[in-house]
Each structure stands twice: as structure tokens, then as C-alpha cells.
Amino acid sequence: MSIDALTIGSHTFSSRLFVGTGKYKSVELTEAAIDASGAEVVTVALRRVDLNDRSPSSLMGLLLRRSSLSSENAGRRWTILPNTAGCYTADDAVRTLRLARELGVASIVKLEVIGDPKTLYPDNEQTLEAARILVKEGFTVLPYCIDDPIVCRKLEDLGCAAVMPLAAPIGSGLGIRNPHNLSIILEYAKIPVIVDAGVGTASDAAMAMELGCHGVLMNTAIAEAGNPVLMAEAMREGISAGRKAFLAGRMPRRRYANASSPAAGLIE
């Protein structure tokens, strides 16, 4: 399957699983889970430094060793996908990603502009406004959005490199709540569709891929699993199985049975 690469903007990835770096119990577990997931794209957030703890965070140490943050890293490297989590306005999101670019990690960016702290659903108007500005400034923009074909089409028209509709609320683990909408989004879109948020377990990831989605981004489903490393491996296999099933083309659904053994030549 090595020729089945995912291309977003000028980037090409062999893994269709994108993973977050939040909520892990330790940085060692973060690294082991990302390795088990096979992901090449890892999301990070931007926050104020802690003036009372000036040592580089342990995550920074990990990113320096494994990611594109350091140009000296040989071999397989993670691509850092900075997010705008916690931003409620287009201005805040644009400001955050300009700072990410200053850190040298903004070759592709995850835009999310939140509209409500309880659901963490996106604010459509603010997301569209931020996308418009960021595309104009040359960012490769991957927006988190509602699973609405119209918003996805508007984001594509603005020049986003992919759209990332949610499967369910962020961190909810509820799985794909509206596969019908995702199918319509996939039918309309000429850019990659990455399911972002709401996946709970490996069958959810497989289902997204079976629908024809081009990738899945997840964090909590791995980080909050009883065994994050094992779940990361399960997600990798779920993504792979779902992708292969999609490419293979599933059999038609039938209302009644259809025997697999010959009807002729029965022993009488």
C-alpha cells in the first residue's frame, strides 16, 4: 500500500492517522503511543511559557528529537501541526498561528475557532474569516469544522488544503454521529477530508475510512485508553483496514440471504 499516499498541499504522508499530544500521563507514553500509531503528523498547542519554570518543557525535548522542529533530525520525522485550540475569535486564531510560524512549525496548521466551551463546536463565521486571512498569508490551512457540507464547501472555496469535520464533540468518544453528512461532504469535496474529533475506538476510525475519508485526527481516544500504546496500534490497524475496505469496494447490501454454496448438486 506504499503508493496510497495522502497529499495535503505540498505535503505527502504515508500514514492517514494524525495524532494529538495532549492528555498523556508522561512524555515517554506520548512518544511510545505516537510510535505505535505510525502517525507522521502530530498536533500541538501554543501557550504562554511558565515564568516560574523556565526549563524547556519535556514535550519540547521530544519534539526536538523527533520532529521537523529540528532540521538536524535524520530518518523519519514527525510533522508538527500547531492548533489554535482555545481561540474564540478569528483574530486570536490568526495571532496564534503567526506565533507558531515564528517558531518554525507552521508549514501546515490546524485552524479551530471555538464557539462554545461546553460543546467545543466551531464558530463557523469566525473560522471562515480566519481561514480567509491565513490562506492569503500563505498558510496551508486545515480547518476543524462542523460536519456540514456547505461550510466545508465554503472553506474549500477559500483555499483551505483540507477540511476536518468533526465526528462528534471533541474528547467525547461518541464515534461518527452523522455518517450521511460525511458522505455528502466527501461527494462534494475536491480536497482531502480528515475526520477530526469524536472518535472513540478503532471501529470508529475504520468506519470513517470505509466512508472514504482521507484520514482521521484523534487525541483523547488514544491518550485516555486503558493502554494508550495498544490503542494506538489498534487505531493504526483500524485506519489501515478501513482504507483497504474503501479501496476494495464493499459488496452490496441485500435484504435477504444469498447462499454461498451451490444450489445445484445437492445430495438427495
Binding site: 499530544t21 501554543l46 514535550l59 507558531a100 512549525v105
Partner: peptide
Amino acid sequence: IELVQLVGGG
């Protein structure tokens, strides 16, 4: 002055 770094996130 704002001083900003990368942290874990999703």
C-alpha cells in the same frame, strides 16, 4: 510582552 511555547494538544 508575550512569551509563547509549544505544549501538548490535540
